[in-house]
Amino acid sequence: MIDKRVAGPAEAVAGVKDGATVLVAGFGTVGIADDLLEALHEQGATNLTIVHNNAGNGDVGLARLINSGRVAKVICSYPRSGDYSAFLNAYRNKTLELELVPQGIISERMHAHAAGLGGFFSPVTAHTKLAEGKETREIDGVLHVFEKPLKGDVALLRAMKADRWGNLIYNQSARNFNPIMAMAADLSIVQVDEMVELGSMDPEAVVTPSIFIDRILVVGATS
């Protein structure tokens, strides 16, 4: 019988390696797998590349990993959000690298990897600083910039409900990057508020089909 639930936070993030690329879902403070990020802090993996829209808040979750010197690189669209002092200190001390990517390009690069594509051409960033050094091509008279696929070794996700296979539904704007990151990592781990019986979710309403999910940590609606 398939049951992707794990016993606890340590089991959820077991095996994450040093140097891993970790996709961290969420936008602002919404839809973030806070418990999985804390578990990753306990687990100890270091030299991480983090893919996230922002760059951590306060001294919890991603910010705590940064403050502990565990993050080598952040790929994000907008680091200056909320209390981003952890990122700012590391950035000013040059202890981490920033790759700035437009928000829609981050999500589409992950989508491309998930879809088995070798990248795509996009008009976003054409004629700007963010296109410097990238391959370009004129398509129907419009300059396009080549964007490579973006793959995660691990994705840390947050959903509202799961069944034991890992079918997921989300909570309103907490959906954000979660379904895309779920598809784009080798190991997709989700923190959920609630487990439901297999077959009880409306098949028309399931957002993430179970094939993309590897481990489920049930934490309840803690925050």
Binding site: F27, G28, T29, V30, G31, S81, G82, Q103, G104, S107, E108, M110, H111, S122, P123, V124, Y170, N171, Q172, S173, A174, R175, N176, F177, N178, P179, I180, V207
Partner: peptide, 29 residues
């Protein structure tokens, strides 16, 4: 769990829907 692009609390009108980030930016791009 319901915020806008500026990360302020917001609401959904009748008929409003949610989508993931790649579709949100597909609509934009």
């Amino acid at each position: 769990n319901l915020i806008d692009a500026g990360k302020n609390y917001t609401t959904l009108i009748k008929g409003g829907v949610f989508m993931h980030h790649a579709d949100a930016f597909l609509m934009i791009r």
